[in-house]
């Protein structure tokens, strides 16, 4: 059973067992425009919730991606390194950035659900 949670900074964490697959939301990739470069963390790095985990750059903007949850980085998506455009094509799927082994599943409760995030986006319009 997977569930996707969101932050106000437009990161998502798709929970797969005790692992969170982290990326930026489809809304975020639209706002950024064409992504041209991604800076990913090293595998094994321990992140606290809110730490800078990655950087996503478009031509005109660079955005820090903050860890939505605490834990150790267990995998990064080499495909987006080579093909940053994947984030524009499929931010929620093939454009994922990193996987974090959850240190505290309780943190997920502080993130927004799919419906809450959709409502949050409406307030930004």
């Amino acid at each position: 059973m997977t569930e996707t949670r969101y932050t106000k900074d437009h990161e998502y964490a798709r929970v797969e067992g005790d692992v969170a697959v982290v990326g930026i939301s489809d809304h975020a990739q639209q706002q950024l425009g064409d992504v041209v470069f991604v800076e990913l963390p090293a595998v094994g790095v321990k992140l606290a919730k809110g730490d800078g985990a990655a950087v996503v750059e478009s031509v005109k903007a660079a955005s820090d991606v903050f860890a939505p949850v605490s834990g150790e980085v267990i995998e990064v998506n080499g495909a987006v390194d080579a093909q940053p455009g994947l984030i524009n094509e499929d931010a929620m799927g093939r454009g994922w950035l990193l996987k974090i082994k959850l240190a505290d599943a309780g943190e997920l409760a502080s993130l927004m659900s799919e419906a809450d995030y959709a409502a949050f986006l409406k307030t930004l319009a």
Partner: peptide, 10 residues
């Protein structure tokens, strides 16, 4: 999130 991203392809 920087929301000033804009089209950079013609």
């Amino acid at each position: 999130m920087n929301n000033q991203g804009r089209p950079t392809r013609p």
